[in-house]
Design a protein around this nucleic acid. Structure first.
Lengths: 346, 346
DNA sequence: CTGAAAGCGCTTACAG
DNA sequence: CTGAAAGCGCTTACAG
């Protein structure tokens, strides 16, 4: 930088101003500085900058697992979001393990400017007491206590999405709608179950616990196979199956096929997440798109607005909600469905 | 650090030594220093360290796209590899776009210590002239020119894997083996095609160009649907279909199902990559596992050995090869297959 | 085995 | 609108 300053005949202060767009300088000065930068192939040293200004221009994305396509696709959206431009994204995978999740969250010190956190193994009562050293936005339902802690939330439309997809199944005339994916606790599964129950209640259909199958969240892919197998073994009658994740639905689909159960004729099938594999299943899967792109943009935008302020610790936690799209495909429609219909809600 | 030094009654040099395990110091000194660190909750400032030592303890992983499960699962393996412990992983997605790929590769300056690069849009003649400012390991076949450039390669067993899977199809009595996934150029598809041709030649089966279908690499998922549709439209007879990617096979599977073609009875189907979706397809997909874990570990190990040396620029480029596992599943075996059989090769 | 001190390349009050 | 200079927190020859 001092070489640039010398060449341009100014002080390093001025070079710094030009590079960062801070302070003020005459257009001619800027010209000279930029020319010198160009000529010398100068680029700023991020360590020196970080040492002084405590900015890293890096955010951490804390996810359970990239083997789950939903998280992988979400990560991709975070990386390509326009809001992310100029930031590096460090990916940390917790493998859905409580210990690792805690360790990863506690390790963010001056290494990143902010954190996007997708909880999996830890519930609010476990992660809220953690020392969040950096601005953090959490994906999921915001517990009341979180407001004063300065954590921002992106609340996804799990309940509304589940409500819509179950409403769709009911509209197809299905009444015995089994679900696979229940998982007690404060996670998305619980919200999806709420949507399911509300939709049933509105249609005057009784909630039947024998239709509700839990999952082992450690491996959702095989949970579909395990869950559907369990469901069939109970011999409970059902004419629709709503899986709380597409990967579960894909696994369930293979079990149904092997058991000679036709989808959608015998059983209408629906998933959740709208991952790529849902579009290309046979038959293509009816599902709910939570809007990975808009979740990603919202999360990064929340983070940026907090990263840029000195007093960010004092700011109360905010809450943003995102919408969903119901994707009706052949797995749930006996009458030939339009190739792809999107019902948007907000 | 000076506070720690003062408290322990030593100089900052000694504290630095203890923290980094460099130099030498008496056990008692170490005790005192560690106690002081503990008491003060001290942790090193990575910017100050980076400013001096030019180390970032960060590597970049340059991938086409996390929407491709193979890349997502590979990224997960890189992140959790034991070799990666103590390093941060910055993920960069090029979206399979040549311009972005070039831009991303040129942007790694002092921000990372090394780069793992999975080429997609750029061939060697395009990326080799790039100024690799950091130690870089490339996934794929090493061109002769790369040796002196100091680029390390992990060569994956694409050709051998394809050879094995085609050998398996031939052993099942299939003779008209169509392939989807051909893509001219120096990419994995070409190596897989070589394996296919070799296996055919060894079995005395003629290579028939009308059985070879290319893909639009921009969206492999839908390439399966497009490719299978194209294949059926040509009315060429085939009794097996080998797709160069599982995602292509999943798409093709849906087309075959819709066309009333039974898998494996009418057509034996095989994919490549062994992603999760292959295990849970109906029927489960015969495929090749290139060993994401071992590729990841090898790549990071190569990088580390280079990152740690001053003279790494002078080191000639190295080459490591990894093995594969053939996973025979129901999609290719008319006689009931064992639930999962792994044939390992190296 | 350990210390005193320079310096990495920035940013930023302070001064003009 | 711009300059001179301190200082961020480390590492590392150099010296003993």
């Amino acid at each position: 930088m001092s070489t640039v300053a010398e060449k341009a005949g100014v002080s390093t202060k001025t070079v710094s101003n030009v590079v960062n767009g801070t302070g003020s300088y005459s257009p001619e000065t800027e010209q000279r500085v930029r020319a010198a930068i160009e000529e010398l192939g100068y680029h700023i040293n991020p360590f020196a900058r970080g040492l002084r200004s405590r900015r890293t221009d890096t955010i951490a994305l804390v996810l359970p697992n990239l083997y789950q396509p939903f998280y992988a696709e979400f990560a991709e959206q975070v990386i390509r979001s326009p809001e992310t431009q100029g930031l590096k994204v460090v990916l940390e995978s917790t493998r859905g393990d409580a210990g690792r999740e805690r360790a990863v969250l506690s390790s963010h010190r001056e290494l990143v400017d902010g954190v996007i956190y997708v909880p999996h193994a830890l519930g609010p009562e476990q992660y809220l007491p953690l020392p969040f050293a950096r601005p953090t936005v959490v994906l999921g339902e915001r517990p009341a206590e979180a407001a004063q802690l300065g954590l921002d939330y992106v609340e996804t439309a799990d309940e509304q999405g589940a409500h819509a997809v179950v409403g769709h199944l009911l509209a197809q005339g299905r009444r015995r709608i089994a679900v696979i994916g229940e998982r007690p606790g404060p996670w998305a599964g619980a919200r999806r179950l709420r949507g399911y129950r509300t939709a049933l209640a509105e249609a005057g259909v009784d909630y039947d616990e024998s239709l509700v199958i839990g999952v082992d969240d450690a491996d959702l892919w095989s949970s579909g196979v395990a869950g559907a197998t369990r469901l069939l073994r109970t011999r409970v009658r059902f004419d629709a199956l709503f899986c709380f994740h597409d990967v579960v639905a894909v696994g369930a689909l293979s079990v149904l096929a092997r058991s000679g159960i036709a989808v959608p004729d015998d059983v209408a099938l629906a998933g959740f997440d709208d991952i790529e594999a849902a579009r290309f299943a046979s038959p293509p899967l009816t599902t709910v798109d939570l809007g990975r792109e808009s979740i990603a943009r919202t999360a990064v935008a929340l983070l940026r607005s907090r990263m840029d302020r000195e007093d960010s610790r004092e700011l109360p936690g905010r809450r943003e909600s995102t919408g969903f799209d119901l994707r009706v495909r052949a797995s749930s429609t006996t009458t030939p469905a339009p190739t792809e219909s999107g019902v948007t809600a907000r």
